[in-house]
Design a protein around this nucleic acid. Structure first.
Lengths: 216, 216
DNA sequence: GTCTATACCGTGATAGAC
DNA sequence: GTCTATCACGGTATAGAC
C-alpha cells in the first residue's frame, strides 16, 4: 500500500507510452503486444492485465490525452472570445484557437504528445478507428468550434461550414502525420516538422477559404 | 497456349482487384494473403507466384492505376491551358484540373477506382508507405501542377506554394478516405460520399487560400 | 492487487513438392 | 500453375510469485 502505489502506475504508464509511440508510428495492426511490452520493459501479459484486449489498449491510449487537449483548445477559444468582446470572434482567431494548442504541446517538447498527435492523424483517416474513436473524443469540442464559426459567419449555409471544417481537419491531419512528403516535394524548402510555419500559413489560408465559401 | 492465355491474366487481375479492395479498407497489415486469395477465388500461393512478397503485391496494386490517373490529370491541365490561352491558367482552373479527374472516375462508377482512391488516402497519410510510394508515383505530376501554380502566382514565395499544396493535398486525402465523420458531425447535412459537393466547395476554398497566402 | 513465466492454439507468409 | 507443409509469430489465458 506504500511502494506499490508509486510503482504500479509507473509500469502501467510505461505501457501506455510505448503503445502510443508504436501505434502512432505503425498503426494498430503494425504493432504487436510483445513489441509494446518490450519497449516498456515489462512482461507481455501485463498489458492484458491492465487494459484487456489489444483494441482496448488502443482505445485507452487514444482517450488518455483527449481530455487535456480539449481543455486547452476550449481555454484558447474562451480567451479569444474574451479578447474580442464585445464583438464576435473572427474566423482567424477561432482557427488559431483550434491550432495553437497543438503548437504549444509540440513546442513544449514532450515526445508523448508528438506521438499522440500523430496517432490522431492515424485515427482520423482510418475508417474503422475513426468511426469508433473520433466522435466520442472530439465531437463535443468540434461542435463548440463550429458554433463559434457560425456566429462569425452568420450568412453561411449550414453545410458549407462543415465542408470548410472538413478542409481544415484534413490539412491539419496531414500536418500531424509528418510524412516528410513536403520535404521531398519542395526539395527542402519546407519541413514536415516545422509546425510553426505550418500553422502560420494555415490560419490565413483556411480563414480565406471559409470567407470565400461561406458568403451567403 | 490457347485457354491459358485468356485465363491466366484474369486470375492475376482478380488478385490485384481483391488486394486493392481489401488494402484500401483495412490497410497493409490488416489484410492477409489468404483473404485476398479467397476474395479473388484463387489459391493462396498464386499471389506470391505472380507478385512475390506481400509488400511487392501492395506496391503493384498502388502503381497499377497511377499512370492512368496521371494521364487524366495532365490532360485536364493541358485542356485548361488551352482554354486560357493566351493568358496563364487561373488558380481555380489548375485546382479543378487536379480534382475533376477524380470526380470523373468516381462518377464512372468503377468500384476498382473507388478503392484505389481510398488506397491513395491510406498511403499518403502513412509514414512508411507514403515515403516509399508517393514520390515515385506522383511527384512528377505534382511538380507539373506546382509549376502551373507558380506561373499563376508569380509573386508567391517558393515555400508558400508548397504549404498551400500541402493543405490541398490533406483536405483531398481526408475526402478520399471517406471516413463518414462529416456525416456524423453535420448530422446528415453533408455526406462523405458526396464527391461533387466536396469538390464544388473545395475548388473556391483552396483557390482563396492560395491567393491569400501567396500574395507577395 | 501487481506482475512474470509460460503454454496454448490459431493463423500467417512462404518455400518446395507436384 | 497449384497444393501442401513448415515454421515462426500473434493474441491471450492461466498459474503462481512477490
Amino acid at each position: 500500500m506504500t511502494t506499490d502505489q508509486s510503482k504500479a502506475p509507473a509500469k502501467r504508464d510505461r505501457i501506455l507510452d510505448a503503445a502510443e509511440h508504436l501505434f502512432a508510428e505503425r498503426g494498430f495492426e503494425g504493432v504487436t503486444l510483445r513489441q509494446i511490452a518490450s519497449q516498456a520493459g515489462v512482461d507481455v501479459a501485463l498489458a492484458s492485465y491492465h487494459f484487456g484486449k489489444k483494441d482496448e489498449l488502443f482505445t485507452a491510449v487514444f482517450q488518455r490525452r483527449a481530455g487535456e487537449l480539449n481543455d486547452r483548445r476550449l481555454a484558447a477559444l474562451a480567451e479569444a472570445k474574451r479578447q474580442a468582446m464585445p464583438n464576435t470572434v473572427s474566423v482567424e482567431a477561432i482557427i488559431s484557437a483550434f491550432l495553437r494548442p497543438l503548437e504549444d504541446v509540440q513546442r513544449e517538447g514532450d515526445s508523448g504528445w508528438q506521438h499522440y498527435l500523430a496517432l490522431i492523424a492515424y485515427v482520423n483517416n482510418h475508417t474503422y478507428w475513426g468511426q469508433r474513436l473520433m466522435s466520442s473524443a472530439f465531437d463535443q469540442l468540434v461542435t463548440e468550434f463550429i458554433g463559434a464559426l457560425k456566429a462569425a459567419l452568420p450568412e453561411a449555409p449550414n453545410d458549407k461550414i462543415y465542408w470548410c471544417y472538413h478542409n481544415l481537419s484534413g490539412a491539419l491531419t496531414l500536418t500531424l502525420a509528418r510524412t516528410g512528403r513536403i520535404d521531398r516535394l519542395s526539395e527542402g524548402a519546407c519541413r514536415s516538422d516545422d509546425y510553426q510555419s505550418a500553422y502560420d500559413q494555415m490560419i490565413p489560408f483556411m480563414a480565406a477559404g471559409f470567407y470565400s465559401v461561406c458568403k451567403a
